[in-house]
Write a protein that binds this DNA or RNA. Structure first.
Length: 312
DNA sequence: GATTCGTGGGC
DNA sequence: TGCCCAAGAAT
């Protein structure tokens, strides 16, 4: 490898030694169910979909039931979108549930029900981006590829670069950073899991637990005195009153009703602002999260249709 | 590159 | 309380 590429990386990796991290992980690893030995690549993929932008604690009660009910891509594909959306419940970002269902359909139909092991192939599947493709290749197939999520970026920013927080994501730079840290191929996947774990439970975004960090004697940020972040921060994301909240309310109604509902019933979910309500409903329709029946009623997509006379 | 897309817990 | 953030992806 050219010195211009390798020199800096090996220099920096002194601040984050794989052995330090792996020995810590051996004692600190959480026993998450999707890390058990008998979990299949598909089930790992399901966990990664659920974990996108979602805390572990909220996935824990959903994932076991989900994979017991739909253990394979073909089993998932055989379910209706409505069933999948109901099982997804209030996990958030319900488009992920639709994409997971689409992903299952593609794998069942085009890949003989076998999750691909190649990063490039995985990344072409619905709902799978750079992180998820690498997570599956690494955690399910033990490929020594860098796995970069928000935790990894923060740990690297601090321990390696001495900065309080990760900067703007840059796939090429982020992957190169982690590539330079990866140990031998046999331990690469475990190293990535450990890196994420450290960011999740020790090197957290707010009030990191530096006292119990395995890198506390080498971390560049701590050695620099743990300087706080400076400069402009992103405006805080709001939720109350946004279209996202309205979409959530509308979906709430549809999840709770096993029969199609009238527009008037949907109006009750967000009575004040009809313009915003319409906008949210239209976006749900175009996202394929809601469908409108010929009688004008609304339901989750694929929900049973012989319900106009059914009781609730 | 900047936005949009849920939901709820911690502080 | 209100703000911040959480194993990202798609556009």
């Amino acid at each position: 490898m050219p010195d211009i590429l390798h020199g800096f990386g090996s220099q920096r990796s002194m601040n984050l030694r794989a052995d330090d991290l792996l020995s810590w992980f051996a004692g600190a690893e959480r026993e998450l169910p999707w890390r058990a030995g008998d979990v299949t690549p598909w089930q790992i993929l399901v966990s990664e979909f659920m974990l996108q932008q979602t805390p572990v604690a909220r996935v824990l009660p959903i994932w076991p039931d989900w994979v017991a009910r739909w253990p394979t891509p073909s089993a998932t594909a055989a379910a209706s979108q409505a069933e999948v959306l109901r099982a997804w419940g209030k996990l958030g970002y319900p488009r992920r549930a639709i994409r997971l269902h689409e992903c299952a359909t593609v794998i069942a139909q085009d890949f003989a029900d076998v999750v691909p092991d190649d990063v490039e192939v995985l990344q072409q599947l619905p709902g799978i981006g750079s992180y998820t493709a690498r997570a599956v290749a690494s955690f399910a197939y033990r490929q020594p590829v860098p796995v970069v999520d928000t935790n990894v970026r923060r740990v690297v920013a601090r321990a390696v670069h001495g900065q309080p927080d990760a900067g703007t994501p840059s796939a090429r730079r982020d992957h190169a950073d982690v590539e330079a840290l990866l140990p031998d191929a046999d331990r690469a996947a475990r190293f990535s899991a450990a890196l994420m774990e450290l960011g999740a439970i020790v090197c957290t975004a707010r009030s990191p637990r530096c006292d119990s960090c395995p890198l506390k004697h080498s971390c560049s940020w701590r050695l620099a005195g743990s300087p706080p972040a400076t400069g402009p921060r992103r405006p805080a994301q709001r939720y109350a009153g946004t279209d996202r909240q309205v979409r959530g309310r509308l979906l709430d109604v549809l999840r709770d009703n096993v029969v199609a509902v009238t527009r008037a019933e949907l109006d009750l979910a967000w009575p004040v602002d009809a313009v915003q309500r319409e906008r949210a409903l239209n976006s749900l329709l175009s996202d394929g999260l809601v469908e409108q029946r010929s009688d004008g009623r609304f339901a989750l997509p694929g929900q049973d249709r012989n319900d106009s006379t059914a009781s609730r």
